[in-house]
Design a protein around this nucleic acid. Sequence first.
DNA 1: AGCGTGACGTATA
DNA 2: TTATACGCCACGC
Length: 112
Amino acid sequence: MSDFYHRVYAVCRHIPEGKVTSYGAIAKFLGSAKSSRLVGYAMNKSFSENGVPAHRVVNRLGMLSGKHHFGGSTLMEDLLYNEGVEVLDDQVQNFKQHFWDPSDHLNPGDFS
DNA sequence: AGCGTGACGTATA
DNA sequence: TTATACGCCACGC
C-alpha cells in the first residue's frame, strides 16, 4: 500500500463508473503533483493487476492518450462509452461533467 | 548505484 | 494559436 504504483491502482479502483479522472489529479492526490508521468507509467503496468479500470484515466484534456496501449483498437472508447461516457475523436465529451477528482471523494489518509 | 524511460503538465517561442 | 522544450520522479535494468 505504500508503493506508489499500488496507491495509483487503489485510487483507480475507486473511480466510479461513468466517471474519469486525470493523471495529474491522481498524482496530486497522492502527494506527488509533479509525478503525473509516473501515474501513466503505473497504468501501463496495471495491466498485470486486476480491477484497475485504466480506461477511466485520461490526461487533463480528457484525451484518450492511452488508447494506443489498449491494443490500438477502440476498446478504451468502447469501455467508456459503455459506462455512459461520450467519446469522440479520442476525446471525452463533456469532460468537465464526467471528471471525478480523487481529492473530492477520497481520504488521502486511506492511502498513506 | 547510475541511467534511460514515460498513458503528463507547464512554460516558452 | 500551434509547436517544441524541458522538468518531474518512481521504476526497472
